[in-house]
């Protein structure tokens, strides 16, 4: 197991729904948003795992949980074999040096009052890796690496002087400067212009080669997931409904939800639309999760058992798992 960087076991995060005093008097019970509702997965060193799902599927919450930006409600998170589920304070900080994050919105994730150089230098000082002249040298190096060249010019600029693509490069530089082994990338290219997305993805792949780092790549875009990842896990209402190696997920998608998602992706080169597996309605509220298989309310194939019994995630071929009664035997 020395090759495993991250193990997540039966992880849950339930957020209490805030209610007014009057509402509490009337209904009494506290309701919970079951954002992440019992998921397990592992990641190997240098691997890219995509978590794909619609808004409300729990993918972003999962990312924040494994970084321990949220406290899990239950379950376990093992980082390099060490249980970090309940770490606090200094111990948590020492682990965080090895895990970094890249967010979706490069306009919101960079402090507008800080110079680019200081933004990228910050993690070095927080983790006591370097300071002063040495830190500056490291910042200049990493700015060059992310293509912000000449780096000494970018060092003194502010985020407002940069385009969206360049800001995302700054965010990547900040994440990479501590040489992490594990990075959560939450929709890192969704807000980048299409003509520049590929270059950001390439940059992320370059760092994977250099640092042998693993990415948990969170996205709603299956086409991007196909391009970048080794494995894909599809999330629906806080659960993983199917996961497997990328080629198999695309050549042999099994879960009706996966198939619907895949068939809804526009293909640019066909000059028409493909055959769709159409779903009714939209993702239900994670407060009132449907009984049995939580997808049954939208599934075109749902039968009695799907309403009554929750399907387990079972392995159908090597590394390919699906949670659907039609594939459980």
């Amino acid at each position: 197991m020395t090759n495993t960087i991250l193990q997540v076991k039966n992880l849950r995060k339930h957020f209490p729904v805030t209610k007014s005093f009057l509402e509490r008097l009337i209904s009494g019970e506290t309701e919970f948003i079951r954002a992440v509702d019992g998921i397990s997965f592992h990641m190997k060193k240098g691997e890219i795992l995509s978590l794909v799902g619609e808004s409300g599927s729990g993918k972003t919450t999962t990312g924040k949980l494994v970084l321990r930006l949220y406290k899990p409600t239950s379950g376990k998170i093992l980082f390099k074999g060490r249980d970090i589920t309940h770490l606090e304070g200094e111990e948590l900080r020492s682990i965080r040096r090895h895990m970094q994050v890249i967010y979706q919105d490069p306009y919101a994730s960079l402090n507008p009052r800080m110079k680019i150089g200081d933004i990228v230098k910050d993690p070095l000082e927080v983790h006591g890796i370097a300071s002063g002249r040495e830190a500056k040298e490291m910042v200049l190096d990493v700015l060059e690496e992310v293509g912000l060249s000449p780096s000494d010019r970018f060092y003194d600029l502010y985020p407002r002087n940069l385009s969206g693509g360049q800001r995302q490069r700054v965010a990547i530089a900040r994440a990479m400067i501590t040489k992490p082994e594990f990075v959560v990338a939450d929709e890192p290219v969704s807000m980048i212009d299409v003509s520049l997305r590929a270059s950001i993805l390439e940059l992320m792949l370059k760092f994977r080669e250099e640092l042998n780092l693993a990415y948990l790549f969170i996205t709603h875009d299956l086409a991007v997931a196909k391009y970048i990842s080794n494995r894909i896990a599809i999330m629906y209402l806080g659960k993983i409904v199917e996961k497997g190696p990328t080629e198999i997920m695309f050549s042999k998608p099994l879960h009706p939800y996966t198939r619907a998602l895949m068939s809804a992706i526009p293909v640019p080169t066909l000059g028409g639309r493909r055959e769709r597996l159409k779903l009714k309605g939209e993702i239900p509220s994670p407060i009132n999760v449907p009984s049995g298989c939580r997808f049954h309310t939208r599934c075109p194939y749902a039968e009695d058992i799907c309403i009554k019994k929750e399907p387990e995630l079972v392995e159908v071929s090597s590394g390919h798992l699906v949670a659907c009664h039609f594939y459980s035997s």
């Binding site: 299409v194 997305r197 391009y227 080629e247 695309f250 992706i265 293909v267 640019p268 066909l270």
Partner: peptide
């Protein structure tokens, strides 16, 4: 520059 799920081993 855009990913196309109909293509395998696409180079963006």
């Amino acid at each position: 520059a855009i990913p196309n799920i109909e293509l395998n081993d696409q180079k963006l």
